[in-house]
Amino acid sequence: MAAQQSQGIQTLLEAEKEAAKIVQQARQYRVQKLKDARSEATKEIEEYKKAKERDFKAFEQSYAGTTSNAQTAVDNETEIKLQAISESYTRSKDLVVKKLLDRVVLVKPELHRNLKKLGA
């Protein structure tokens, strides 16, 4: 009976070793699957980034011409307005200086309005 118990214990120990080996293989398999999934996800992310970057570059190139055209139009309009302001300044500067000098030099001696009320 001792031999039978010994044989039963030996069988249980072997079964336990086999189960531990199976569990270890399952863990290794799971770890490998996680690594594969991560690397696959990284590849997909990189492909997605590249695709979006290409789309953005295409979008940017399609609208790059319109921004340069708009900038050119704004520059031309600004130049025209600056010329108009310069011409207006050139035409009006003498008249403005004359009006200012006339006002500064023109002195009418009269009583202040508050002083007039007191005297009346």
Rank of each mutant, 00 (worst) to 15 (best):
114 N>V: 09
30 R>E: 13
109 P>S: 14
15 A>R: 08
24 Q>Y: 02
60 E>I: 00
1 M>D: 11
1 M>C: 10
98 K>F: 06
18 E>A: 06
63 Y>N: 07
67 T>E: 11
106 L>K: 08
15 A>G: 07
3 A>G: 13
97 V>R: 11
80 I>H: 02
69 N>D: 03
60 E>H: 04
106 L>W: 07
56 F>A: 05
66 T>W: 01
2 A>I: 08
52 K>T: 02
53 E>R: 11
74 V>D: 05
77 E>S: 02
42 T>K: 13
77 E>N: 11
3 A>N: 14
42 T>E: 14
53 E>D: 05
75 D>W: 03
8 G>R: 13
17 K>A: 02
54 R>P: 00
119 G>C: 15
112 H>V: 07
55 D>V: 03
8 G>D: 15
102 D>S: 00
107 V>K: 00
28 Q>I: 05
66 T>G: 00
36 D>F: 01
90 T>R: 12
83 Q>M: 11
62 S>M: 05
81 K>Q: 07
35 K>Y: 08
13 L>N: 06
79 E>N: 10
39 S>A: 13
74 V>A: 12
24 Q>E: 10
7 Q>G: 03
66 T>V: 07
119 G>Y: 15
101 L>C: 03
115 L>I: 14
43 K>G: 08
100 L>E: 05
42 T>I: 15
76 N>L: 10
51 A>R: 05
68 S>Y: 02
21 K>M: 10
10 Q>M: 11
79 E>Q: 10
41 A>S: 09
52 K>N: 08
57 K>R: 06
114 N>F: 15
76 N>G: 02
45 I>Y: 13
33 K>D: 03
45 I>D: 15
82 L>M: 10
18 E>N: 13
28 Q>L: 10
18 E>H: 09
31 V>R: 11
43 K>R: 15
39 S>V: 14
32 Q>G: 02
6 S>C: 11
44 E>L: 12
81 K>G: 00
110 E>V: 08
60 E>C: 03
91 R>I: 03
119 G>W: 15
87 E>D: 09
116 K>I: 03
6 S>M: 14
50 K>M: 07
99 K>I: 15
54 R>N: 07
55 D>T: 04
25 Q>T: 13
32 Q>C: 00
28 Q>E: 04
90 T>C: 06
59 F>D: 01
